[in-house]
Design a protein around this nucleic acid. Structure first.
Length: 592
DNA sequence: GCCGTTTTCGGCCCGACTGTTTTCAGTCG
């Protein structure tokens, strides 16, 4: 497992900070998009239990999703501006405005008052939806997981119409699972790769495609979706060898747990592979939009083809590209399929020309054995050559970060000498950089007289993560204003599944970077994936260059470049937006 | 509750699997 070296910064957490992390509302604090999305989502759940109009519920869910992936904080927007966002109408705009001011809105509080709080937790149980939760509540007065457990053990569930022994056992099992896992954790891409490797062992080459969020290049993966053209009877038998547990099994679909994660296999034939792959790749919102477009033309799109509803004829598609063409749009690559504007762009033939892996000429954040990496400079150059790079940016830590064996001035001078020697006979040039700490007060961990002689400088936050949002933002802004810093490294500081991003105003950071002509890093380490797609898109829109770096500490880590490129493609980045597409000289000139 | 190059009213994606049923509701993706 890759080691993450972070400064063990001892901090006293104020109550305010803890509440902020929990996402609780506080007077005078700008409510985050995530918090607003959570409230809208909660409203949707309550309305489900209350048996409200399903389309109203969908409207709340859609609004929550849309707001969740906006970079700009919606709390600052007026209801009128909010209404310009697709999926948000006058009613929800008003509610968002209320959440921004009060942390909630009257309809939400009213709905909350009518539903026992424990019912929301019951909805998280596998196999328990709003209808089930409501019946249990109304008929048996079950309001919590404990109530449900007692009722199931006492065989009281089976007295209900439509419920039997299997449901009772199912509830008990779901409760056990829910109690065991602390929280539903998404996989890193590295973990997803391990699960996929395991599944591939029993699959035949050329008979499957990995779909889902993995194929879309997302920074974290919920479950693994695979399309297979093998026969269910033979493959299902082989899959049981690697399954921890089979969840359900059929002729068209099999779900199981492998290495603790859910894997869904869908079976299809080669002649309908295109529609199945399209369906299983998603996203859900993308599929819905595409099916609506088909419907407007009088066609029904599903995973088996497109049916003409008037003629009754069915068109089959072996390849995805044919479906897009049939619908009158340009082909949309998986990374863009989020209903994030790409469908309209495809219809009007305005899709971006996304950056491609083959255009990447360098890795712009690697560590060597001079600090906490495994490879020395010549080995690094060799590894760069193997990846087809013309150059690598070696950025070891500055000495202020004691834990990572940071470099001081004499060490940097010796390192420069070693790099010079290596560059004499290597096709992969090592650029001499540093990952300098942005200290708590916004100054750098190394003095200007050292930084000015380096090729490219990354400035990163490695300490005092719990600063207030305004302090942290100004801290990073002063680094952007530092003439010797070229790139802000892993700008939000998150460690996936371990540590939340620190409080930072990314739109302000992006605007400042645009103004100063500095780059933001897309850190491609699967443990970071920082900045994420929504901020890349915002940066691209504002003309801020993106620098992809694997933050590599060992030879295998350089392969993480793929993750970074996919993430940038999700952010609609074209080659001109990415520093890694530049030549050595071009990059030197940009940084000077 | 949202939305409109057929609509400002009347639509709103579509199918697989399970458990409970004798034809389907609920959940899930």
């Amino acid at each position: 497992m890759h080691r993450i070296n972070e400064n063990a910064y001892v901090e006293t957490r104020t109550k305010k900070k803890v509440r902020q992390e929990r996402g609780e509302y506080m007077e005078g604090m700008e409510v985050s998009n995530g918090k607003i999305a959570d409230q809208l989502h909660l409203m949707a759940q309550l309305l489900e239990i209350l048996e409200e109009n399903p389309f109203k519920i969908r409207a709340y869910i859609r609004a929550a999703e849309v707001i969740g992936r906006l970079a700009t904080p919606v709390a600052a927007l007026s209801p009128k501006d909010l209404e310009t966002i697709a999926g948000i109408g006058p009613a929800i705009a008003e509610k968002v405005h209320e959440i921004a001011a009060n942390g909630t809105f009257p309809e939400l509080e009213e709905a909350r008052g009518r539903v026992p709080p424990g019912l929301i937790e019951m909805l998280t149980l596998e196999g328990v939806g709003p209808k089930t939760a409501r019946v249990l509540w109304k008929k048996l007065h079950i309001e919590t997981l404990d109530d449900l457990e007692k009722a199931a053990r006492g065989h009281r569930i089976r007295t209900l119409k439509g419920f039997g022994e299997k449901k009772e056992r199912g509830f008990l099992k779901a409760i056990a699972i829910a109690r065991q896992r602390k929280e539903e954790r998404r996989m890193t891409r590295l973990e997803a790769d391990l699960v996929i490797e395991e599944v591939k062992r029993v699959m035949r080459e050329g008979t499957y495609d990995v779909a889902g969020s993995y194929r879309r290049g997302k920074s974290t993966i919920g479950d693994i979706d695979i399309v297979s053209v093998d026969t269910p009877s033979t493959l299902n038998r082989r899959l049981t060898q690697i399954a921890d547990e089979v969840l359900d099994e059929g002729e068209r679909k099999t779900s199981f747990r492998c290495r603790g994660s859910r894997v869904d296999i869908r079976y299809t034939t080669r002649s309908t592979l295109g529609t199945m792959l399209l369906y299983l790749t998603g996203s859900k919102a993308f599929n819905i939009r595409l099916r609506e477009i088909a419907l407007q033309k009088g066609w029904r799109l599903n995973e088996y083809g497109i049916r003409d509803l008037t003629l009754g004829t069915v068109h089959e598609f072996s390849r995805e590209a044919e479906i897009f063409s049939f619908l009158g749009m340009d082909p949309i690559v998986p990374e863009l399929r989020e209903d994030w504007g790409e469908i309209d762009a495809a219809l009007s033939h305005n899709l971006p020309n996304l950056v491609e892996r083959s255009q990447i000429r360098s890795d712009l954040h690697v560590h060597s054995s001079w600090s906490d990496g495994n490879l020395d400079i010549p080995a690094l150059a060799k590894a760069g050559e193997a990846h087809g790079y013309t150059h690598l940016l070696c950025t070891d830590h500055s000495s202020s970060l004691g834990i990572a064996r940071g470099l001081d001035e004499p060490a940097l001078r010796r390192q420069a000498h070693e790099i010079e020697i290596s560059n004499r006979d290597s096709s992969c040039q090592i650029l001499h950089g540093v990952e300098v700490d942005i200290l708590a007060d916004g100054t750098t961990g190394l003095p200007s007289r050292i930084l000015k002689d380096l090729d490219v400088v990354i400035g990163s936050v490695h300490s005092a993560f719990s600063q207030e949002i305004d302090v942290m933002t100004r801290r990073v802004l002063s680094a952007i204003g530092n003439e010797h810093i070229d790139i802000i490294g892993h700008p939000t500081g998150r460690l996936l599944g371990q540590r939340e991003a620190y409080a930072i105003d990314m739109p302000r950071v992006i605007a400042a970077a645009a103004e100063a002509g500095k780059a933001l890093e897309c850190n491609a380490s699967p443990f970071r994936m920082d900045i994420d797609d929504l901020h890349i898109r915002e940066a691209v829109t504002k003309g801020v260059p993106i620098s992809i770096g694997t933050d590599s500490h060992g030879p295998g880590d350089l392969a993480w470049m793929d993750y970074g490129v996919k993430l940038c493609r999700r952010g609609w980045a074209e080659p001109g937006n990415i520093l890694n597409t530049m030549s050595v000289d071009g990059l030197r000139e940009w940084a000077s």
